[in-house]
């Protein structure tokens, strides 16, 4: 694998150049929070973050997306789709979030159901990952084969080593970008930093405090849709908000509806939706197959730990820990995994 070096002093120059040529999306600080936003240059970028409060999945699946405008002229229906996606660079995605995008790919780019809106953004975006420098108490990416310096999903992965970034070139797309700015992405001496990166990865890997063991969990869920476990406290304490699903980097449910202006004009939108909401599964006739929080809470964890695996052979969680941090009542997926493991062992 190829590697390059970017001097820390040259990062601003790189970001400014990227912002000129691309839509640059990068972490920014707003009051107490960190978001991924389109920025005009290095001056807006905030790099002292552990992870953003909302994941950067919105680059590919925005919370609000207009899919087309329509006009009914009396005898025909005119549909106008938005223009081509702009060339975009997503800078500073943490390894968990970059990996999360690879769990969305098979959903939106499957053979059966390709999603042009997602695909065009995906094709036109270069993902520059940024290795973590700190492990939070809520982090557990290691449980899904991820890691604080893991390059899965990143076209380029930056790892901070002293006054330099060690840059791993993981894809052709990443190589094209690095070659384009070859004055900044230097090849000289890059290989010598590989060991330094490994050391950092090893050090950070030792900082995880959450023990997460998935042994037997999938098999248990395969055989048991109904488990007494789901009658426990977790659903009772759930307040049914959508926080966990909206901050999650792998949740991808959406709703589609039309916004009509007058009688003949309008636009079709798709917006994030949450399986935690009662109306998510509400049928036209009034029946709701997930009538209470119990079924909804179960669904969320079944999706993460079973359904996504069944469909795409990937766990639907990357261990970013956002849902743990943000849940108002401390519903904790790592506890649920460990509890399920215990149920499996005692079965």
């Amino acid at each position: 694998m190829e590697a390059r070096i970017v001097k820390k002093g040259q990062l601003s120059e790189l970001l400014d150049k990227l912002a000129q040529e691309y839509d640059l999306v990068a972490p920014v600080q707003e009051e107490t929070l960190t978001f991924f936003r389109k920025v005009s240059g290095a001056k807006d970028v905030f790099l002292e973050y552990t992870n953003s409060d909302v994941s950067p999945k919105g680059c590919f699946l925005p919370q609000n997306e207009k899919t087309f405008n329509y006009t009914y002229t009396g005898d025909s229906l005119e549909i106008v789709k938005p223009g081509d996606e702009k060339k975009t660079v997503l800078f500073g995605a943490r390894p968990c979030d970059a990996r999360a995008i690879t769990t969305l790919d098979p959903v939106f780019e499957g053979e059966k159901f390709g999603d042009e809106y997602y695909s065009s953004k995906r094709e036109n975006t270069v993902i520059i990952g940024l290795s973590c420098s700190k492990v939070l108490s809520t982090c557990f990416c290691y449980a899904f084969d991820g890691g604080p310096c893991d390059g899965t999903g990143s076209d380029l992965l930056f790892t901070e080593i002293g006054d330099k970034y060690y840059v791993e070139v993981n894809t052709e797309k990443g190589k094209v970008l690095a070659d384009k700015y070859s004055q900044i992405f230097s090849s000289q001496g890059a290989d010598q930093l590989a060991k330094g990166k490994e050391e950092i990865a090893k050090k950070l890997a030792g900082e995880f405090v959450r023990k997460v063991d998935l042994t037997g969990v999938k098999e248990l869920l395969d055989d048991n849709f109904e488990l007494p476990f789901w009658n426990g406290d977790d659903y009772k304490k759930c307040i049914g908000c959508g926080t966990c699903t909206y901050v999650c980097p792998t949740c991808h449910c959406f709703d589609i509806f039309d916004h009509t202006i007058g009688d003949f004009n309008g636009a079709r939108f798709r917006c994030w939706d949450s399986c935690m909401y009662p109306e998510y599964t509400l049928m036209a006739g009034g029946h709701n197959p997930r009538p209470t929080r119990k079924e909804r809470v179960r669904n969320r964890f079944m999706h993460k730990l079973k359904y996504h695996l069944d469909r795409y052979n990937m766990v639907g969680c990357v261990g970013c820990g956002r849902c743990i941090r943000k849940c108002p009542v401390n519903i904790d997926i790592t506890k649920i995994i460990n509890d399920l493991k215990e149920v499996a062992q005692n079965a």
Binding site: L33, I239, C241, G242, T243, Y246, Y277, P278, E279, P328
Partner: peptide
């Protein structure tokens, strides 16, 4: 403008007790 409309504020609120909230109506 930051609001995600997760409705955590409403759901946690002991004053919000409507059987069907106006914001959930389809």
């Amino acid at each position: 403008s930051r609001c995600l409309r997760c409705y955590a504020c409403r759901n946690v609120c002991s004053v919000c007790t409507c059987q069907v909230c106006v914001f959930d109506q389809m």
